[in-house]
Design a protein around this nucleic acid. Structure first.
Lengths: 163, 163
DNA sequence: TCAGGGTAGACAACCCGGTTGTCGACCTAT
DNA sequence: ATAGGTCGACAACCGGGTTGTCTACCCTGA
């Protein structure tokens, strides 16, 4: 008679979180073992946002809905890891324009592939249609929430490093 | 033609994270507006673990698979918020036994209710059977992963506070 | 009996990713 | 020319985690 304090709702939340972490841990671990040590899931997403046009710190902050200072820290990390370069804009001396490096593109495409591989494994496990249904439901359930689905992922990271 | 860098796998990860955050933000916000300001999702889960028998810092750390120091910090927060009390064990002077207070029980049951209300809304949205299927699939997809599904949730918190 | 080894908890320093606030530099519009 | 808004840098802080060190305490076995 100890359990059962567990609410089905909390279970569900844990399930969702677990699913996310599972994917991220897998991808980050694989990334690390393929020449991209030190990369976090958030780097993945931030880099993609940059590539898609958020090429200044302030803009990146807006896209990810975090402060520009937070974005600047992320950019510093990306720069340190060699994924982006910064150069001052000739036409506006305030902004430092961001450019994704070749290595950055490598990481992005590899990351995308790895994420999709995990998804494919899941599809194999429960069936492609079932996975599609699951995604559709999730999309429906989260579509009407305040903030965009762009919020960064402050999770995952250290796992999978056990060499 | 700018998108499409987006991999379906990454989309899925974001969907899962979004679902989790959506639930947590909702619950934490509601909790705050009902006399439990300052509580984080992790407090919820930690408190439940304590109630279910993890009544010392070290044990709580083990249950949540974090260091005992991390557990001690969480406990300090719970104590400050009035959700647990600590007293030295009469039969073992090393341990500080944890006890969930009345207010703690309040918060736990309210939290469980709120989580389940969110889940009920979801059930209403996509159908109870569909939700059950979704949960079953998620459980299946995450069941064979290394660490237990007990890892704390370092997320959510500040939302819903806009008064 | 008492010496070791293991465990509980306290404390400190640190990391990481976020926050707010301040600042100087820079554009731009009036 | 100046006022207001934006950009990026810097500093301080917070929350939640880490490692490492330390003392107090229990327990067991020689």
């Amino acid at each position: 008679m100890r359990l059962m304090t567990r609410s089905p709702g909390a279970e569900l939340a844990l399930l969702l979180l677990g699913g996310f972490q599972s994917m991220v841990d897998d991808v980050v671990g694989e990334l690390a073992s393929r020449g991209h040590e030190g990369v976090r899931a958030s780097h993945e997403f931030a880099l993609r946002a940059i590539e898609e046009g958020a090429d200044t710190a302030a803009e990146l902050g807006r896209r990810l809905s975090v402060s520009k200072q937070a974005a600047a820290k992320t950019i510093a990390a990306l720069e340190r890891l060699g994924y982006v370069e910064r150069e001052t804009d000739p036409s506006d001396a305030r902004v430092k324009r961001l450019r994704v490096t070749a290595r950055g593109h490598d990481m992005m495409t590899l990351g995308a592939t790895l994420f999709t591989e995990v998804r494919d494994r899941w599809a194999a496990q429960i069936g492609a249609e079932q996975l599609a249904v699951l995604e559709a439901h999730l999309a429906q359930l989260t579509k009407n929430r305040p903030a965009g689905a762009e919020s960064l992922a402050p999770l995952g990271g250290d796992l999978g490093e056990a060499s």
